[in-house]
Design a protein around this nucleic acid. Structure first.
Length: 558
RNA sequence: GCACCCAUAGCUCAAUGGAUAGAGCGUUGGCCUCCGGAGCCAAAGGCUACAGGUUCGACUCCUGUUGGGUGCACCA
């Protein structure tokens, strides 16, 4: 089950036999594909270095691979470049580098974003939102059916508190700012805020029409603002059933647990003891109001019943690990064997000043503020380096590139890493950044614009003789592996780093033309120009799709 | 107290158990009468927190220690 998504990888594996891993050698001068002979030698009871030597000696060149050499326990293969170029460019242009049917017939539920209503979208929300969106895009690209779920936090004691605060003080117009302020003030000034919140929740769960109408308005106001942000980020949700959609299931769930003798009363609340857990999981308060665990059970049942997913992902910060571990154990205890498809996909905190942020902690940085600053940075940069860009293009590009910078900065580190919020870094346009990828793409587009010639039918790829050109093509071959690994491990950052490498290889090749005009793409020699242009088109296609998998736009100029 | 996560260049981060641990930022020095310099090249910078273990091979897996972060019943 090695990662063999191209005919060249398959050829290398076949030359060795068995089911080997085909990887890139650490240095290109060693070859294009490497296969370690450790496992095979062990199976045959021979020495890996000796086996590698024999395999290299027995190697017969084919249309894909030109030669094989043994290097210690590795066999290194060199591609038949001219033939490989043709396949790579064609596959890239047709969008066939990725295994498009890998996920055929499989459904992936992804719960991500899922903010609380009546509260700001803070900067730290961007982490889970962008990770989830990138995973959704990547699974879709591989042919999985994806259900993007926004499990809106629109029920519970918190919202009882906002309603109670509104009743107490009112608000100067209903916006998410005024609602957020109500919540913060209520917690700060009312000693028994939580009790009052629960009392109001009880009214909601009893069907109080006034309370329900008010709650609905708060939800609508909140969603309108969230939707604006999702539009900017290019996110579309398939399922918007928030917590409020599920609280009515609590009675049925509790009754079932009681009938199955799992429910225990502890300190007046309804709980379930879980194997291996010191603290039980709470289902109902002593007032009888529902708790999030109960609503999560209902939501999990709904997702299984409605979508029957092969994987059901919860992209939620690491702070909720314990909750999800308990939730999944509860599902198992309830006899749901489908609970094994549920996975918590945790990510590290976005810290400010080394500390966790939160509405209650009062140290939130707003997402829209960071976006605005990023856009300003881009506008300033454009004024400096590309002053002739038309004003309407500037407006669009400033947003695309500004957002690209912020999104990339959040996707590039591994999920588990905590991130310290650093404004300069989040909006950086230089170095390993979203704008660098976008810039590489825009350069490709610029060359193609300037060439102004149709994609030629007959291309002699043997004319691409420079190592820098081959390095680019070789890197294109790694695109499928980067995307498959991203989905398998739920780690979008593998795509980020792949695209940085591709852009770097492209830029290196491109820059050769600065000192040696014969190495430029747009040379007078028509056959050479056509071949190089085809390679540029292939790079552009992969950059564009790769960026889309990250949820980042790919403007043609910037 | 218990649990989970993290520790790699001055800083921010990479590295499917494999070959000489790589980028960016910052520092120093180069490269466009330009196919877009938001770029490229080069130099300098490492006992991969520490100590053991597993194996042909460990930044990667296991155990312990230290340091930091986050959770641990009526918030979500």
């Amino acid at each position: 089950m090695a990662s063999l998504y191209t005919p060249l990888h398959v050829a290398a594996a076949r030359a060795v036999g068995g089911d080997p891993k085909v990887e890139a050698p650490p240095r290109p001068e060693l070859g294009d594909f490497a296969v370690g002979c450790f496992a095979l030698a062990k199976a045959r009871g021979t020495n890996p270095a000796q086996l590698a030597k024999e395999l290299a000696a027995a190697f017969q060149p084919d249309e894909w691979l030109a030669s094989a050499t043994a290097a210690g326990p590795f066999v290194n293969f060199r591609a038949n470049r001219a033939h490989a170029f043709g396949w790579i460019v064609q596959a890239a242009l047709r969008g066939e580098l990725l295994p498009r049917t890998l996920g055929a017939g499989q459904t992936i539920c992804i719960d991500y974003g899922s903010p609380n209503i009546s509260k700001h979208l803070a900067y730290h929300h961007i982490r889970g939102t962008t990770i989830g969106h990138s995973l959704a895009q990547s699974f879709r690209a591989l042919g999985y059916r994806v259900v993007a779920i926004n499990f809106l936090g629109d029920w519970g004691t918190t919202h009882g508190m906002v309603l109670a605060a509104y009743e107490k003080w009112g608000a100067p117009g209903l916006t998410i700012d005024t609602l957020n302020d109500l919540y913060v003030r209520f917690r700060a000034e009312v000693p028994d805020a939580e009790d009052q919140g629960r009392a109001y929740l009880k009214r909601l769960e009893a069907g109080d029409p006034q309370a329900t109408a008010m709650w609905q308005r708060f939800r609508d106001v909140s969603w309108a603002e969230f939707e604006d942000v999702y539009r900017i980020l290019g996110i579309h949700y398939d399922d918007l059933n928030g917590e409020a959609f599920f609280w009515r299931d609590a009675d049925r769930i509790v009754d079932k647990l009681r009938a199955d003798k799992m429910l225990v009363e502890s300190e007046g609340a309804q709980v379930v003891e879980l194997p291996g857990e010191k603290t039980p999981i709470l289902l109902l308060t002593k007032d009888g109001t529902t708790l999030y665990a109960t609503r999560d059970v209902a939501a999990a049942e709904f997702r299984e019943r409605t979508y029957h997913p092969t994987r059901s992902l919860y992209v939620v910060d690491r702070g909720q690990s314990l909750h999800f571990r308990q939730l999944f154990k509860l599902l198992v205890k309830m006899g749901y064997d489908w609970a094994r498809v549920c996975e918590h996909v945790p990510y590290g905190l976005v810290r400010v000043g080394g500390k966790k942020t939160g509405t209650r902690l009062g140290n939130v940085v707003l997402m829209r503020e960071v976006f605005a600053i990023a856009e300003d940075e881009v506008r300033a940069k454009i004024a400096e380096v590309n002053p002739t860009l038309p004003a309407d293009v500037v407006a669009t590009v400033a947003r695309q590139v500004g957002i690209g910078a912020v999104v990339f900065a959040n996707l590039a580190p591994q999920r588990d890493k905590d991130i310290d919020f650093d404004l300069d870094k989040a909006v950086s346009l230089d170095g390993d950044s979203g704008p660098y990828l976008q810039y590489s793409h825009a350069r490709c587009a610029s060359i193609i614009r300037k060439a102004n010639e149709p994609e030629a039918g007959d291309i002699d790829f043997a004319l691409l003789a420079h190592d820098a050109e081959w390095a680019v093509a070789r890197k294109l071959l790694e695109f499928p592996d980067a995307v498959v690994r991203a989905t398998a491990a739920c780690e979008p950052h593998t795509i980020c780093h792949y695209l940085l490498e591709l852009s770097a290889d492209f830029s290196r090749w491109y820059t050769l033309g600065n000192s040696d005009a014969s190495l430029r793409v747009l040379v007078d020699d028509a056959p050479v120009r056509r071949a190089r242009l085809a390679l540029v088109r292939a790079v552009q296609a992969v950059l564009r799709e790769g960026l889309s998998l990250l949820g980042i736009a790919a403007p043609d100029q910037m």
